[in-house]
């Protein structure tokens, strides 16, 4: 771990301003991802801005009838929040499918969205990795890629985004509210929040430098049956091989976002029109253009099977 300086800020605007003031700074929320990466010198911030006390830890109704989830709300609090459980069951289930109770107690909404990939080569600083060291190459593509992405990837990086929560947020059409260093705020639809890797896999979101996430906005509830099915080798405490987050309506229409296949939660709205036709048709469209490796090609069939399971469950 590199030596760093530390400060604690009181307001979101202060946080963004502090970041602008000190080059090489990073926000610290729950620290469950950032600290691990710092110990391995995968992240080497010179300055840490602790945003834990900026007061963004509330979940409030919005005038539109949705919810505004403070960026610092913990995964545990969010999963257990009554209106979330009632109206956004998908989100609650996705959260509870992730990590462990202890981690969820620390992990925050913003930190979860910004957690970094679990590609094993990213974690070993001796290995080539374009995401960690731009231009160094990608050891995973010809190496061990069973866990990695099949779509939205590039010849520079095939890593996935590992979040369960983000899959649910994507299906729920969430928006990410931010404040920039100059004090301006904006709301970014989650659909546009992540970038595909292309030749710059180290750039993962469209956030500007020093831009602070203040909240995640959920539109009014859409009803339907909410299912989050996470598929993994062991029954708990593992990242998804793939996951399917679905909201299925009585008439067979619905929304599905998929995790574990791409550098971001993968959702193709046009494919959703095929949902009433069944899992096969929908998945073919969802994963059109997929470029799996030999080791992770099974994910294509697995997504289709899991979508079938979810649609089957929704019917019963």
């Amino acid at each position: 771990m590199k030596t760093f300086t530390y400060e604690r800020v009181r307001t979101p605007a202060e946080a963004a301003a502090a970041a602008a003031r000190t080059p090489g700074s990073k926000f610290l929320a729950g620290g469950t991802n950032l600290l691990d990466l710092m110990k391995l010198e995968i992240e080497t911030p010179a300055h840490i801005i602790d945003v834990g006390k900026v007061g963004l830890d509330k979940i409030e109704p919005t005038p539109a009838g949705g919810l505004r989830i403070g960026a610092l709300v913990t995964n545990t609090d969010l999963a257990n929040h009554l209106p979330v459980r009632r109206d956004y069951g998908l989100l609650s289930r996705a959260l509870l499918a992730g990590a462990t109770g202890q981690l969820r107690n620390k992990a925050t909404t913003a930190g979860n969205l910004l957690q970094r990939t679990r590609c094993p080569y990213f974690y070993d600083t001796n290995q080539r990795c374009n995401k960690r060291v731009p231009g160094s190459g990608c050891a995973a593509i010809a190496g061990f890629s069973r866990q990695l992405g099949v779509i939205g990837t590039s010849n520079a990086c095939i890593a996935t985004h590992p979040s369960d929560m983000a899959v649910a947020m994507r299906a729920l059409d969430a928006g990410v509210e931010t404040v920039k260093a100059n004090g301006t705020t904006r709301t970014i639809p989650l659909a546009q929040f992540y970038r595909l890797p292309g030749q710059t896999p180290h750039l993962e979101t469209i956030l500007e430098k020093n831009e602070l996430i203040t909240a995640v906005l959920l539109p009014p509830p859409v009803g339907g049956v909410h299912i989050y099915q996470k598929v993994r080798d062991r029954a708990s405490y593992a990242f998804a091989l793939i996951s399917v987050g679905a909201i299925v309506q009585k008439d067979g229409t619905g929304r599905i976002a998929v995790g574990g296949v791409a550098p971001q939660p993968w959702r193709v709205e046009t494919a959703e029109q095929l949902l009433p036709a069944g899992a096969k048709e929908f998945t073919a469209q969802l994963l059109q253009g997929a470029r799996p490796t030999k080791e992770n090609a099974f994910k294509l069939a697995l997504v289709e099977n899991t979508v079938a399971a979810v649609l089957n469950e929704a019917r019963h």
Partner: peptide, 9 residues
């Protein structure tokens, strides 16, 4: 490659 307890389950 999978030399931690997240990768080696």
């Amino acid at each position: 490659v999978n030399h931690d307890l997240a990768g080696y389950e």
